[in-house]
Simulated scan of single mutants.
Amino acid sequence: MKNKILAIVVTVILFSGCASNNSQYYWGEYEGLVYKTHHTPGEVPPSIQIELLQTDIEKAAAVGKPIPPGVYAHLGLMYAANGNKELALASLTKEKELYPESSTFIDGLIKRSLNNS
Rank of each mutant, 00 (worst) to 15 (best):
A90D: 04
E58Y: 10
N115A: 09
N82Q: 14
P69D: 13
L33H: 12
Q49E: 01
S113E: 13
T104L: 15
S102Y: 13
K96R: 12
P69Y: 11
E86F: 12
I13N: 05
A90T: 05
G42M: 09
G76K: 07
I50A: 01
S91D: 03
A73P: 00
K65N: 00
T11Q: 07
P68M: 07
A61G: 01
Y99T: 02
L87M: 10
S113R: 08
A81L: 02
S113H: 13
G70S: 11
V44H: 08
Y79L: 02
F15G: 09
L109P: 04
E95N: 05
L114K: 05
S20E: 12
E31R: 15
G70H: 07
E97F: 02
S117Q: 14
V71F: 12
A62R: 13
K111F: 08
V63F: 08
G42Q: 03
E51H: 04
L92N: 00
P100E: 10
I8T: 07
V44A: 04
P41C: 12
L14P: 02
Q24T: 15
S23W: 11
I13A: 12
N84W: 04
G42F: 08
I13W: 11
K85F: 09
P100W: 12
G108K: 14
A62L: 14
L52W: 06
K65W: 06
N82W: 08
N116Y: 14
Q49K: 09
L89E: 10
G64K: 07
N116L: 14
S117Y: 12
M1C: 04
Y26I: 08
N115S: 09
L6H: 04
Y99P: 03
C18P: 00
A61P: 00
L53S: 02
I13H: 03
I106Y: 11
S91V: 04
S16H: 04
G32I: 07
R112A: 14
F105W: 11
A19K: 09
T55P: 00
L33S: 09
N22T: 15
P41M: 09
S47M: 08
A90Q: 06
L6F: 11
